[in-house]
């Protein structure tokens, strides 16, 4: 009986529905909306990593755009300087490696601080990367950015394919696969002893130190993992967007990452994913419908902070628990 019950867990059903929904999406929605969704998915990967730092470790970074840029530029610069290596199975590890290196260096400096010092420091360091990407015109293309062509895969080229075909064909399934892999890995991380230790640090740094957790080192690990998630998201985003610019390393972009996470709700594991998907549609439709789209985005943010601090997912979870509670009591 118990076995059966665990089999039909509502969570599992939701996952199955979501997975199949994602996979069938190219047949349901228009190419344009599919691409919007793919933007959302790449940001969702970033937000998953970002939440390890914000939601689970209690560190707010206003500079995660830097690691996103590390991934995206890793891909774009490989395309420019090593065209032979322009193959997905090589590019993804390259992006991960570069974002690992940069987040390890920047993280080493940042994790010595917490709270607002940490936030500003992360911001300043991402702006350093921005300045370098912007100023070294001959290397990085400066503010023009770099073009990202369609990659190969194990020697197979997608030549003669227009990008929408590529994106709604093979790449969509690749992206969804990467997303679920990232999702499951992150789920394992937060439920592992390491994840529990991070939460202990978040809740009470002194106590965590006393029970033997090496606070600063754990923070650095969390920082690096979340940086690598950003790098992965950035690399995948590069193919969807087809063009990378230093803007992704600017702190405004980092602010948008924080926005997404909060919009979805950082108290719930899947919250940032929801936030990333919603944010993309919100921003693009606001941009398409009015000249004053920043006003709409800004006002939405303010309203969410004021009345829905748990974000969309947080609000839903609270609603669900409120509905669930009476029925639970009834069963008992």
């Amino acid at each position: 009986m118990a076995q059966l019950k665990s089999f039909v867990r509502p969570g599992l059903i939701i996952y199955l529905v979501v997975i199949s929904g994602f996979l069938f999406l190219p047949r349901i929605v228009s190419t344009f909306n599919l691409i919007l969704f793919q933007y959302g998915i790449t940001f969702a990967i970033v937000a998953l990593g970002f939440n390890l730092l914000l939601g689970y470790t209690g560190l707010l970074s206003f500079g995660h755009g830097a690691y996103f840029a590390a991934g995206a530029y890793g891909v774009a610069m490989t395309a420019k300087y090593f065209p032979d290596l322009f193959s997905l199975e090589i590019l993804i590890p390259i992006a991960l490696l570069i974002s690992f290196l940069i987040s390890a260096i920047f993280g080493f400096v940042c994790v010595r601080h917490t709270k607002i010092f940490f936030a500003i420091l992360a911001l300043a360091l991402s702006m350093l990367l921005y300045a370098l990407l912007f100023k070294f015109y001959h290397l990085t293309g400066g503010s023009d950015g770099l073009y990202v062509k369609i990659p190969m895969l194990f020697g197979h080229t997608f030549a003669n394919m227009r990008r929408p075909q590529f994106l709604s064909g093979f790449y969509h399934y690749f992206l969804v696969g990467m997303f679920f892999a990232a999702y499951i890995v992150m789920k394992c991380i937060v439920n592992s002893p390491f994840g529990k230790a991070l939460q202990a640090i978040r809740d009470n740094e002194v106590r965590a130190e006393l029970i033997g957790i090496r606070v600063r080192r754990y923070r650095l690990y969390a920082f690096i993992i979340s940086g690598m998630y950003s790098g992965l998201g950035g690399a995948l985003w590069g193919f969807v967007n087809g063009h990378v610019t230093p803007d992704v390393s600017h702190w405004i972009f980092s602010g948008e990452l924080v926005y997404m996470t909060l919009l979805g709700g950082f108290g719930v594991f899947a919250g940032p994913v929801v936030g990333a998907l919603i944010f993309n549609f919100l921003k693009l439709y606001a941009m398409g419908s009015t000249e004053y789209w920043m006003f709409i985005i800004g006002a939405t943010l303010i309203i969410i902070v004021l009345v829905l601090p748990g974000g969309v997912a947080g609000g839903l979870a609270r609603l669900a628990s409120r509905i669930k509670q009476p029925s639970d009591k009834g069963a008992a």
């Binding site: 344009f32 691409i35 503010s143 950015g145 967007n241 063009h243 941009m287």
Partner: peptide, 15 residues
Amino acid sequence: GVDAQVKLSRKLILD
């Protein structure tokens, strides 16, 4: 900026 224009152009052509 460049990125906004890439997105706009995609919207104009596809959507």
